[in-house]
Computed example of a mutant assay.
Amino acid sequence: MAAFDDSYDQPDPRAYFRALGPLEYQAPHHGQGVFRRAVAARTRTARGAEPVTVLDICCSYGINAALLNHAVTLDDLYAHYTSPEATALTTAELIEWDRSYYAARRRPDPARVIGLDMAANAISYACEVGLLGQGFAENLETAPPSASLLRAARHARLITITGGATFLSPRTFQPILACAQDPVWVAAFVLRTTSYKSIAACLASNGLVTEEVTTHTFPQRRFTDADEQRYAVQAVTGAGGDPNGKEVDGYFHAMLHLSRPPEDATAFPLADLIPSP
C-alpha cells in the first residue's frame, strides 16, 4: 500500500486533503452516518446526562470528530481545506479560522471525542481547533498507554476507526477495554485486504459480539497505481473474497464491523444503525 506519511503529520490538514482528494478518499464519509446513529443509541442507554464519550483511534486531524459533531460533510472539508482562502493562511491563521468555522457549525448534541494517533502534529491541531476534547499522541502497538490516556479512555462508550485497522492488533484494544467503566461499542471500517479476526477475538474475550455488514461494502479510496491494485486483488482473493466489482474496478473497499455486548446487539439491530448505501 502507498504511504502518505508526509501528509499525515503536518502542522495542519491542508496537505492531507490535497493528497487524498484526487484519490477520492471517503472512509470518514461512510463513518459519519454510522457513528451518529451509534452515539444516539449509546445516549439512550446512558445512566447520566453527560454526553457520550467517543474514542477515535487513528484519528489524524480529527476528521471523524468534525463530521460527527458539526453540520458539515466530507466534501465540505475537502473544499474548505483546498480553497484559495485556506491556502493563503499560515497555520496559526488557519487554526483561528477553523475555530470559527467549526463553532458556527456545531451540532446541538455533540459527543465528547477523545483522539488517539501516533501523529503528534495532527493531534495538536485537532485539539487546538476544538475538534477533540483530549488527544493522545501514542502508539499502543509499541508501548503501553499512558496513565492520562487510561483515565480518559475509562469514560469511552464508543470506539471508532475509519482508517488504520490494518496496522492495529489486540495490543491497542485490550488496555482500553480493560479500563472502561461501562461496556464499550467498537465500530471499525476494515479494508478487505486485512483480517480482523485477532481483534474480534480480543473483543470477544471482553464480552463483545462482533457483527459484520454483509449487504454491501464501503469504497475507501482509489488505488494509487497498478501495483497497489494488484496487491489488493491478490489479498482479497487469498482471503476468500471476490474482488470483482470492487477492487477490480479500482478502489479499496472496507467492511464495517460492529462489536457490542449481546444485549445491545439485540436491542439495537445492526440494520437500524446502517444508513442506506
Rank of each mutant, 00 (worst) to 15 (best):
A147N: 09
C179A: 15
T217V: 06
S60K: 04
Q234W: 00
D76G: 12
D6A: 07
L168Q: 08
Y8I: 07
L150G: 13
G241M: 06
V209T: 14
E211V: 07
P183G: 05
I63T: 15
A187D: 10
E212S: 01
S124E: 10
G207H: 00
I159L: 12
F189H: 15
A200T: 14
R157C: 04
L168F: 11
G135T: 14
Q220P: 07
K246C: 11
R171I: 05
L74Y: 04
R107N: 12
L67M: 08
Y125Q: 03
F4I: 11
L258R: 04
A103T: 11
T210P: 10
P262H: 01
R221Q: 12
M118C: 10
M118Q: 11
R222T: 14
A103R: 00
Y231G: 06
F268E: 09
V129W: 04
P110C: 06
N206Q: 07
A2L: 08
A226S: 13
A201Q: 05
P261D: 07
C58H: 11
F167K: 03
Y61T: 08
F252Q: 02
S146C: 06
S195K: 02
A204L: 03
A111H: 09
F189T: 15
Y16L: 09
V52Y: 03
T142A: 11
A201E: 09
A27H: 12
Y78P: 14
M255C: 11
F223R: 00
F17Y: 15
P110S: 08
L208F: 05
L258T: 14
P144M: 00
L258M: 14
L132H: 07
A66M: 05
Q174G: 07
L158T: 15
T82Q: 12
D182G: 08
E85V: 13
Y125W: 07
L94V: 15
V39F: 01
G241P: 10
D12E: 11
A178R: 12
F252D: 10
T237W: 01
Y61W: 06
E50I: 00
L203A: 02
P13K: 02
Q234D: 14
D76Q: 03
A103W: 01
A122E: 03
I199T: 10
P261H: 08
Y16V: 10
S60T: 15
A79T: 14
F17G: 08
E93S: 02
